[in-house]
Design a protein around this nucleic acid. Structure first.
Lengths: 231, 231
DNA sequence: ATGTCGATTTCGCTG
DNA sequence: CAGCGAAGTCGACAT
């Protein structure tokens, strides 16, 4: 990884056009060639960037640019698109490089997938007598998180979210519309399950006859086998 | 901005739990206290981070941790939530700080807002005789991008997207459903306008009686006053 | 390659 | 403050 601190102007053109006026910033060049421009302001994402695959070319400024105080010009060109980053280096304040080696990567616990696994194990949170048909039940427009049957054998489609907003209700609605065309499944009831359900989402869901279930992640995790926790 | 290169293990707990095993990484501490942990792998976002407002505390490792090779422990605690980042520094390879000053920030051109402004100016791209009622027409479930009237005085609701996919059609459908409950407006026709419309979105829109319009951004911009371009 | 969907989504705006 | 929607969304995974 190469780290450059420089006073620079940055221009991006591609899906949109963006300009960063001259200021001191951090330019990060990663091992795969990707380039990130960070300010000292909060914001976990760079002000401007170019993702791999791309090519960094360092060149001398034109006489006009040099007269404007540009010491060097970096051009980062995406290999596959017309996306391009142009960095006018006005003053190089620091330039260093480090070898990092391979990163083992991030291990996560507690994302939606885990919530779905817990719910599949504890399917009776939907009500007594519920049984699991399968997780990630495939449809033409994407997988339904959970397909189950209620105590009377009726089909139940469950959409699980950490935070339940209106989009999740729309998603479930699309699945229900499709599933209810299948004579072997219909009628299919919908359940919108989330750790937190936004009022507007609840209104929309209720209006469409979709039941809302609020999930207690910690409680479900507590019931769950300790072994299933990653750490 | 403080830049640290270190062999470290990072643990995040908060909305989820995440673990980064020991490896060499860049730790960026920004002026507002936010902390970003980057690997040398591509990925424009950090592996782990904590956004401001938060507090960084540097402390000595416990005897057990020290025996495991931990030289220092950084704890980054969010001021308002229970989100916490714990960084075990095993080996400090570099530690430097720089003064950046204020960043003037990013100026963008060509985003959806611009597309919407152009369309409001050139509302007849919808057809002869169309007139603008207003942009960002408010409804209970959010603002409609553009409300217009056709040559016969009929109401037209327009949803504008850079990339038109199925979500945009759903969004417009929700607006239409609501607007058509208003006796003063109904019947309200829908127009789905985008620079590019995905086939699936077009099928869904057509099925729902929504007209699709492909926008030529460059052409609209060309017609537009040169002054309106930022650079 | 394309489609779908989650995300510690973040970010910005508006009421 | 919440709510809504955009994002150069990114990134992972399945088809």
């Amino acid at each position: 990884m190469r780290l450059v601190i420089a006073r620079c102007e940055v221009r991006y053109s591609g899906r949109l056009t963006a300009l960063l006026p001259v200021a001191t910033r951090l330019i990060m060049v990663k091992a795969d060639g990707s380039v990130l421009v960070h300010s000292d302001n909060g914001s976990y994402k760079p002000l401007n960037w170019m993702m791999a695959p791309c090519r960094l070319r360092e060149s001398s400024p034109s006489p006009e640019a040099a007269a404007m105080g540009v010491a060097a010009v970096w051009t980062v060109q995406n290999d596959k698109t017309t996306d391009r980053l142009e960095i006018d280096i006005h003053e190089m304040l620091s330039d260093s490089a480090f070898e990092f080696g391979v990163d083992p990567g991030l291990v996560k616990d507690g994302v939606e997938a885990h919530l779905q696994a817990l719910m599949a194990e504890q399917i009776t949170v939907l009500g007594e007598g519920h049984t699991l048909v399968r997780r990630e039940y495939p449809t033409a427009i994407g997988p339904v998180d959970i397909l189950a049957r209620d105590s009377r054998g009726g089909t139940v489609a469950v959409e699980i979210k950490r935070r339940g907003d209106i989009e999740g209700v729309e998603q479930l609605t699309r699945y229900l519309e499709l599933l209810n065309r299948d004579p072997l499944l219909r009628p299919v009831a919908g359940v919108f399950a989330a750790q937190e359900i936004k009022p507007q989402a609840r209104v929309l869901a209720t209006d469409r006859g979709i039941r809302c279930v609020v999930l207690d992640y910690d409680a479900m995790r507590g019931v769950d086998d300790v072994e299933s926790r990653l750490f």
